[in-house]
Amino acid sequence: MSDTEQTPAVPAQAGAPAVETVSRREPLLEVDHVTLRFGGVVALNDVDFTLYKGEILGLIGPNGAGKTTCFNAMTGIYQPTEGQIRFRGQKISGKKRHQITKMGMARTFQNIRLFPEMTALENVQVGADAHHKTSVIAALFRLPRYWREEREGREKAERLLEFVGIRHRMHEFARNLSYGEQRRLEIARALATDPVLLCLDEPAAGFNPAEKEELLQLIRQIRDTGITVLLIEHDMRLVMGVTDRIVVLEFGKKIAEGLPAEVRDNPRVIAAYLGVPDDAA
């Protein structure tokens, strides 16, 4: 909370379209000069950016740029070699993964990681359980708390499945869902944890243009409910249409940051994407 004044990278230019979000400027997530090495590989090199409440930030870059690694560092899978990450003013390092989720950070995975032998409904219920307190004793004897939380979780799960458009599939095992349905289910499961920040790792990978458009609609709706969104994507066009700001990574380094239009015209970004078609999939 204290050192939020150092926000040099955000161009506070006159006439910026996202005036409203920029003017509020409440930092939600601060990635503070993070370096992360895997042996000799430097997956993140002094990456530094801030995510503000209520915005949709795009994190883009060619394959292998370090986007997923950045998510993994944020959600406690990897510890940064140097630097630190603060979420809602608190340091992430040293926190357990489920604690980070409880603080309000939820994510999806680039390679879908559902619970395949659980139904769609149960998958989402697991997310809803993040804030439940039913203990072994309460479940064993079906105490009032069990009934209350079970009903609450079930209703929430059905509502979210409805929201992402797969409620009619709720009793199907996750592994039997189509690829697109699985991607939607991952989003519903993440939303069930009541996130303040939702991190989506290439949620549109493998989608056709029509499906991508539907997904963008969904992401906007999520943002409109007050959830901040961090979106990884390497399809530039997709990102342009939905994000308020964009951070560009290449070989683990941040090479640009700014409004979509600025980033698109940035020569370094164009160079990074040259030879890498927009839709590498």
């Binding site: 489920h98 409880k102 939820a106 619970f115």
Partner: peptide, 9 residues
């Protein structure tokens, strides 16, 4: 891993 990241202790 996914369970932990969905808030399961």
């Amino acid at each position: 891993d996914a369970a932990q990241l969905m808030g399961v202790p």
